[in-house]
Design a protein around this nucleic acid. Sequence first.
DNA 1: ACTTTATTATGTTTATTTAACACAATAAAG
DNA 2: CTTTATTGTGTTAAATAAACATAATAAAGT
Lengths: 262, 262
Amino acid sequence: MNETDFLSLESRIKTFVPGISLDCAVFGYQDRSLHILLLKYRHTDAWALPGGFLPANSEMEEAVHHILEERTGAKNIYLTQFYTFSSIKRGWNCNELSRRTFGSARSIWPKEFLPTLDRWFNQRFISTAFVALVDAKKVTPNPDFISEACLWVPVKELPQLILDHGVMIEKALEYLRTRINYLPIGKELLDEKFTMVDLQALYEAILGKQLDRGNFYRKIMKLNMLKRHEKLMTGAQNKAPYLYSIDDKVYDQLIKNGIGFI
Amino acid sequence: MNETDFLSLESRIKTFVPGISLDCAVFGYQDRSLHILLLKYRHTDAWALPGGFLPANSEMEEAVHHILEERTGAKNIYLTQFYTFSSIKRGWNCNELSRRTFGSARSIWPKEFLPTLDRWFNQRFISTAFVALVDAKKVTPNPDFISEACLWVPVKELPQLILDHGVMIEKALEYLRTRINYLPIGKELLDEKFTMVDLQALYEAILGKQLDRGNFYRKIMKLNMLKRHEKLMTGAQNKAPYLYSIDDKVYDQLIKNGIGFI
DNA sequence: ACTTTATTATGTTTATTTAACACAATAAAG
DNA sequence: CTTTATTGTGTTAAATAAACATAATAAAGT
């Protein structure tokens, strides 16, 4: 962490739309379970969603893409807005953890920047929140300068989160569940090639319930959205599973019409 | 229209969160079809959604409730946020109609307020849009001081709309359709008591397709959400239809789980 | 009394979907 | 030859959807 990071933020603040922030629930799929990308603030046990501010001449989507590229190295991530959080109760004073986190961050900021930064962070922020879906394998999590870690965390094991980020994640998960047939879950969260078991486990992870293998297999196959490839040799003492990939044209059409895998 | 209206806006501007606006697609059901509440600007053929700004110490929902009370006389209208429109292309310069409308409005504003008003309206606005569902019979549309009319317009006959309000309405309608099982459509859009034919026609209006009467009747009745009352004597030369009302407890549970009428 | 009409409630049928469980061929590796 | 998970299909019962039909009902006009 060095002075130029602060300097850069200090000078960039002038270029941001005041009062607007952006947050993003980035979902990835690993080890057969759903993960979310979180940042850990320095010197505290406080975690946060990746986020940032809106440059005056940028579209929100552009800005979120930029934030996510910094945080993951990946461009063209699938993004969709899901809610705008605007409560007057949401500031850094909203709970003990947030107060402590802000205090801790403030204590390591160069003194000469404090007035600007205090003014900026004590605004009322209206935060538009996005859901992003990424292939966890194509991504290198990368902390920003106020964080000491950027990690994939299983959504079943969420840590303490600052501000209203816990509520945001709940709402993002509900969004995933209730729009499951309208979101390109399979295409975006899985690797180019994947096994049938993985595809099923992904939908199970989002819905939070078990699905019957045989029925799932038949349903997916009837939709005609998969291309079958070579087998995946795992070295395990059993028949190797086939790899599949998604036929984009068919899949996009299915998603557009909300036609269901489930 | 009088000077105090302008004065009031001029002085209230200081109390609004800059750069934030609120718009609301208010849906009502009349004459067996879906309507939306629109305002007609003075001296132009430009129409707009009811909307306004966010007082610095208000929640967005509060502010929208306040706007809708002014526009309809009704309190406690059902409201839900559905999208935040933030494009850098959305200002009063986005198309010919908007430019003309703004010019026309500007020409009737007292000169001494023009600097303030120009500065305010030339900002980049981030607009959070809401869907409201109301019982059209309980409402008295009431234009604001820059409009000459506030009317229920059938969604099948939309006029020219300013800014991106046309896109907003499209998105709002899509929201209604894709969340039809999660929204209290019947409860909010219909009168306290209504006939089965009206209930069905309402769902048909939103989905834009015909439903089978017998099947619809059976499905609704099986959900146990209706209480039957006296008949509605229309004077028509036929058996009078029964009136029904919604059993709130059952209905709320159904809506919460997205359990479908359709 | 008879007619016209829309409402109401139920009937019927066919096709499709869901859900739960079962089974046997397959093939990778020990 | 054994162990194992994968794969594709089979089966069955129950539920749902979709389309169409019917007949009693009752309000009002003639």
